[in-house]
């Protein structure tokens, strides 16, 4: 029986004795959240969804924006420890350099949950980590295409993310795994669009020129929705109908792609959910209720959205989240 389990039992017992409330109830808890910053729309959405989730559960959320600096995150975590919060959520900006501050949290018996990125530190320094599986995202997108073309010949052009970034590597790998057994689907061209709309558009323009005006392209797979939005404009400029002449599948599920899906210009997107806090709160609730140790790596769902999934409604649900 290691120290964590003992602590867990003790904490669980204490919670059960003191509150005697519902097992899943974590209302009244004070939880600190050290966010990286707001460098992307998704990040902003994650912040607002975390706040929503905390409010729904009656959690008193202490929010700290690190503005992309690890030193700010370490300061924020030390601050949370000093305030004696019940738990700490961290979206780590980098993978290394967390041992000291997480050991301090452990000594103070405050469970730490990592959100959306892993770290290089002993696993006993944090309770669990909640993240998406980027390879799975690519695989879901690839599987959609395999099902959609149903055996017909299909040349795919791929708009990669920033060269060397982990989402680009993993989403490429997942997609390739999914289409590996479908000999009818081949990736004809692949270039980086740096995750941006304008580069996505520029690269797609070039692909259209080098593929017989687009006649040889059956589908475009973009590593994020923004590049897909750019590619859709390029396809329209070339006199083709995106979504029909050229299928469009991408990843992230930001609001603008739902507008495109509703208009029939994009076909499918795989969600990178901004709700990392929900599973984290659930894990904490179970941990406090009866000492259940969550799995070390909680994987969020990679849900596929198509025109059949009420794209207009999804747009309305997301547009105010800060994307």
């Amino acid at each position: 029986m290691n120290i964590i389990t003992k602590l867990a039992l003790a904490a669980g017992l204490a919670t059960a004795l003191s509150s005697g409330a519902l097992a899943q109830d974590i209302s009244g808890k004070v939880i600190g959240f050290s966010q990286i910053g707001s460098e992307s729309g998704w990040r902003a959405a994650e912040t607002s969804v975390t706040r929503q989730q905390a409010e729904e559960r009656g959690v008193d959320l202490k929010f700290a924006d690190a503005q992309q600096k690890q030193e700010n995150q370490i300061k924020a975590i030390r601050g949370f420890i000093a305030q004696g919060v019940d738990a700490i959520l961290v979206a780590p900006v980098v993978a290394t350099g967390w041992e000291d501050v997480l050991s301090e949290a452990k000594e103070a018996e405050i469970p730490v949950v990592l959100l959306d990125r892993g770290i290089d530190a002993p696993e006993d320094l944090y309770l669990t980590s909640v993240a998406s599986d980027q390879v799975l995202e690519g695989r879901v997108a690839g599987q959609w295409l395999v099902d959609e073309v149903a055996g017909e010949e299909c040349n795919v052009v791929e708009l990669q993310g920033t060269v060397g970034s982990s989402p680009a590597i993993n989403r490429k790998q997942g997609f390739e795994e999914a289409i590996a057994d479908a000999s009818n689907i081949t990736i004809a061209q692949s270039q980086t669009g740096d995750f941006t709309r304008s580069k996505g558009k520029e690269v797609m323009e070039a692909f259209l020129k080098s593929s017989n005006g687009g006649a040889d392209i059956c589908a475009v797979y973009a590593h994020n929705d923004d590049m897909a939005v750019g590619a859709i404009q390029a396809i329209k400029d070339a006199g083709l109908a995106p979504g029909e002449d050229i299928l469009v599948v991408s990843i992230d599920a930001v609001p603008d792609i739902f507008t495109a899906i509703a208009a029939g210009e994009a076909n499918a997107t795989v969600e990178l959910t901004p709700n990392m806090a929900g599973p984290a709160f659930d894990a904490l609730a179970a941990y406090w209720a009866d000492g259940t140790m969550p799995e070390k790596f909680i994987i969020t769902e990679s849900k596929l959205y198509t025109a059949a999934d009420d794209p207009q409604g999804e747009y309305e649900r997301r547009k105010d989240l800060g994307y």
């Binding site: 460098e39 740096d194 941006t196 709309r197 304008s198 558009k201 923004d226 939005v229 750019g230 404009q233």
Partner: peptide, 14 residues
């Protein structure tokens, strides 16, 4: 021009 091209202002990347 760059904003008009993508029909949007992308402050992070423009």
């Amino acid at each position: 021009i760059v904003a008009g091209d993508i029909r949007g202002a992308d402050a992070n990347n423009a």
